[in-house]
Simulated scan of single mutants.
Amino acid sequence: MKSYTLPETTLILVITAILSLVANALSSNIPFLEAVPGMVILILISLAGIIAARVIPGKIPAVAYITTLGCILTFPGFPGSEVVNMYMKKVGFLSLCTPILAYAGISIGKEMDAFKKTGWRIVVLACVIFVGTYLGSAVIAEAILRALGQI
């Protein structure tokens, strides 16, 4: 797998952000420019996580750093979390899926021979993972909402 340079990674993140902002504007009542600060925050968190994965010893994937940093920055009581949360509310996270899934589809298309070698089992595995993730999320949401008295 190719390792991208930091400028290449930044360019990819910016392109993905622009596509996400367009999808966000089309799928919600939030104007394009209002969501830009939240998207910039997402880009900065992503870049910080990618840099951390390259600099910090240990083979921890960048997504772990990105997720951890995002959780820390939005945790209530963390300095500046109110501002970060205010801007992040303007970004519809469902609209982030469109360019990411398109990129994943292109990546799979480029590696079609490798994809064919995995056979039909990968499709079954993917379906089991999707269903398991959905059901797990639903159970957790149900438990939390019941504990809070919302349902």
Rank of each mutant, 00 (worst) to 15 (best):
T5Y: 03
L6F: 11
L6G: 05
P7W: 02
E8Y: 02
T10Q: 02
T10E: 04
T10A: 15
L11A: 14
I12K: 02
L13P: 01
A17F: 06
I18C: 02
I18D: 03
S20R: 03
L21P: 12
V22R: 04
A23Y: 00
S27G: 10
S28Q: 00
N29I: 01
I30K: 00
P31G: 05
F32D: 09
F32S: 10
F32I: 13
F32N: 06
L33V: 08
L33M: 11
E34Y: 04
V36G: 09
V36L: 14
V36P: 06
V36K: 03
P37A: 10
P37N: 12
G38V: 07
G38A: 11
M39T: 11
V40P: 05
V40F: 07
I41R: 02
L42R: 00
I43D: 03
L44V: 09
I45C: 08
I45T: 02
I45M: 11
L47H: 03
L47A: 04
I50M: 03
I50C: 01
I51Y: 14
I51V: 14
I51E: 11
A52F: 10
A53V: 13
R54G: 13
V55Q: 14
I56E: 12
I56R: 13
I56H: 09
I56T: 14
K59D: 15
A62V: 09
A62P: 03
V63F: 15
A64C: 10
Y65C: 14
I66S: 11
I66H: 05
T67R: 09
T67F: 13
G70V: 11
L73V: 14
L73W: 15
F75Y: 15
G77Q: 07
G80H: 12
E82H: 08
V83E: 06
V83W: 08
V84Q: 05
V84A: 08
N85F: 00
N85G: 08
Y87M: 01
Y87L: 02
K89C: 00
K89M: 03
K90P: 00
K90M: 12
S95Y: 07
L96V: 12
L96M: 11
C97M: 14
C97I: 14
T98F: 15
P99D: 09
I100S: 10
L101E: 07
L101C: 09
A102N: 02
A104I: 14
G105V: 13
S107Y: 10
S107C: 05
S107D: 15
I108C: 07
I108D: 06
G109D: 04
K110C: 07
K110P: 00
K117L: 08
G119H: 07
W120K: 08
W120H: 04
R121V: 03
I122H: 08
V124R: 06
V124C: 02
A126E: 12
C127A: 15
C127E: 06
I129V: 15
I129N: 09
F130Y: 10
F130Q: 07
T133G: 13
Y134M: 06
Y134I: 11
Y134F: 12
G136E: 04
G136R: 13
G136D: 05
S137V: 08
V139W: 10
I140N: 03
I140R: 07
A141P: 01
A141S: 14
R146G: 08
R146C: 12
L148Y: 02
